[in-house]
Design a binder for these strands. Structure first.
Lengths: 106, 106
DNA sequence: CTAACCTGCAACCAAATGGTTGTAGATAAG
DNA sequence: CTTATCTACAACCATTTGGTTGCAGGTTAG
């Protein structure tokens, strides 16, 4: 999880993920979109790869990068779980309120 | 967004968020849970605060920290949007397939 | 075969991170 | 009033991060 969120904490890397989710792109094709060296983009891809947010597949002399929706889902589920904690708390407060409402009504 | 994901990329900070989502806790009450100095925990809270994942409210001499579900939701929605990109791609591929199926059937 | 291209990796550098200790200001408790 | 508690903040240190350039290896094109 550390690695997933760490990887997502950079706009360039999030852009790489969003591009490669819809279609594969070679590392150099990706690099054309950003105002930085090829090596820098290569490093970003490596960070995404370690976090399993992206996978590389060799095709001839180039390496095709495609985004990994399953890992994104893992992160999304964790955030949902956090929201659930909050929602449950709110619900308990709500229950307390309706309990006291009931008490007053009875 | 950078700051939100950056803040979530640390297990201690995620734990702080999950604890303070259900009930407020003072900084020193939080610090008791971790094997690090008070100052370190204070820094983690500051990182979460800059990312708006947490808010502090002064009560007397202590500062109560509570998690911010709305910011979590912002991050979750971005991940959902990414998943949607992937899903749409899959759907288009599916459409292409059913198109060619139709073609064959006709 | 040779030249061009795509990639990986190392070395280097500045800035940010995550931790520490120490000091100082408010507030609460006795 | 004095003391203890809670917090903030600065200075310092080691490690990581995000970028660079340069070089070497594998693959395709001519």
């Amino acid at each position: 999880m550390d690695r997933i969120f760490q990887a997502l904490a950079d706009a360039t890397r999030r852009d790489i993920v969003s591009r490669t989710l819809s279609h594969e792109l070679s590392v150099s094709a990706l690099a054309e979109h950003y105002a930085m060296s090829f090596a820098a983009v290569q490093k970003h891809v490596a960070v995404l790869e370690r976090a399993a947010l992206v996978t590389k597949v060799r095709r001839g002399r180039e390496q095709l990068v495609h985004g990994n929706a399953e890992t994104l889902r893992r992160a999304a589920r964790l955030l949902d779980a956090y929201e659930k904690i909050w929602h449950d708390r709110a619900e308990r407060l709500g229950d307390l309120l309706s309990e006291s409402e009931k008490g007053r009504e009875q």
